[in-house]
Write a protein that binds this DNA or RNA. Structure first.
Lengths: 196, 196
DNA sequence: TTATATATTTAACACTGTTAATTTAATTAA
DNA sequence: TTAATTAAATTAACAGTGTTAAATATATAA
């Protein structure tokens, strides 16, 4: 990387860091070009030298938040060995993470992207993120003959969309329930789906 | 209803009709106070004599679209008798309706409401809408001992959140698949969940 | 130091929702 | 019918939004 590239990369991180801070604390609705640039210490127009548009900017944060989410979940299931119990806890933790940061959920699942072709890799990473966290657990369950491989693939997809469905409903208050209630409901369904 | 109320109600329908047209054809992102008022043939400020704000305006459309959706589904399952087969088709039709009108899906599940207390009845109607379409089918299945009552309640909720999860993922292109693929996927899961 | 290239900022445009002031229309009283 | 009053609709204004072009400031090269 030559000097120019180093400097350009550095500039991008200033804007990205500001964006992440706002996303985490105030959510997607408070992201604005002027807001981000202010926090980064630059004029709003400067941002456009480093990012195509504001959608581009926020989508750049996805991988960082995935990393954070991964660490959050790791912490929640540490000392557990792969298997059905841990699988349930991973899904619970995933759910908890996005309830805690609804702005990040919006970024992952609601925000529409311009330039779909260019954003395809990011989209696919969102698509495969949750399954990627549980690969070991499914493998163990298949090896221990707790479940058949075909059923496992289907169940994995089923749980994934179920969790997303509950998240959107709960976060946007379409599902009328408080946190303990929704958490108990998720538990009940995970147990039912995995017939525990 | 006195004259004033009749006239007020009439004015509201003008704005509501314009809103529904835009929602159906161009989606939620193209709803704006000036846009709606233009189509209704009034100034944008006039709208505020009849609606608290723009969120209030769009949420007023929910019940109308629910009626439309109900009719769409009725048509898709006409001549079918209540039971497992029809239950699957109702869910399929529900899915199809929102794929056809993604703007209406956004209104139902994504748009955030101001004045949550006042909108609570509408929110609850969204929450209970899909289940209300399949009451007969669950009853028949329970009576014919195809399923136990407790399992039915759980399964109903499970299917509901699954459908919403797939819809949000497909409409916002988080789930990378074309229409036939996603439709086949939904079918497969419905059949699996209802062990057919 | 001067000329050139690059980076940053300001100004501008076309939007958004919302409110207050103003104008127009309708209704009532004389 | 005309004048006064009330109600409704419109225009103007404000504070936002994203984005682009022109103007300014900074850094690099000769």
């Amino acid at each position: 990387m030559n000097n120019k590239q180093i400097q350009e990369q550095r500039m991008r991180t200033y804007f990205l860091q500001a964006t992440r801070e706002i996303l985490r604390s105030e959510g997607l609705k408070n992201i604005s070009v002027r807001n981000v640039a202010d926090r980064a210490g630059y004029s709003y127009a400067t941002l456009y030298n480093y990012f195509k548009d504001v959608k581009d900017l926020v989508f750049e944060c996805v991988l960082d938040f995935q990393q954070e989410c991964r660490e959050f979940i790791s912490d929640e299931v540490k000392n557990m060995k792969p298997g059905r119990e841990r699988l349930v806890q991973i899904n619970r933790a995933y759910f908890k993470y996005f309830v805690q940061y609804p702005g990040i959920f919006e970024l992952f699942y609601i925000e529409k992207t311009t330039d779909l072709a260019h954003r395809q890799p990011t989209i696919e990473k969102i698509d495969t993120f949750l399954p990627s966290l549980m690969e070991e657990d499914w493998e163990v369950m298949i090896q221990e003959k707790v479940i058949e491989p075909e059923g496992a693939a289907l169940l994995q997809e089923q749980i994934r969309f179920f969790i997303v469905g509950v998240l959107i409903s709960y976060i946007n208050r379409r599902y009328v329930a408080d946190y303990p209630e929704v958490m108990a409901m998720v538990d009940q369904h995970l147990n039912y789906m995995l017939n525990m």
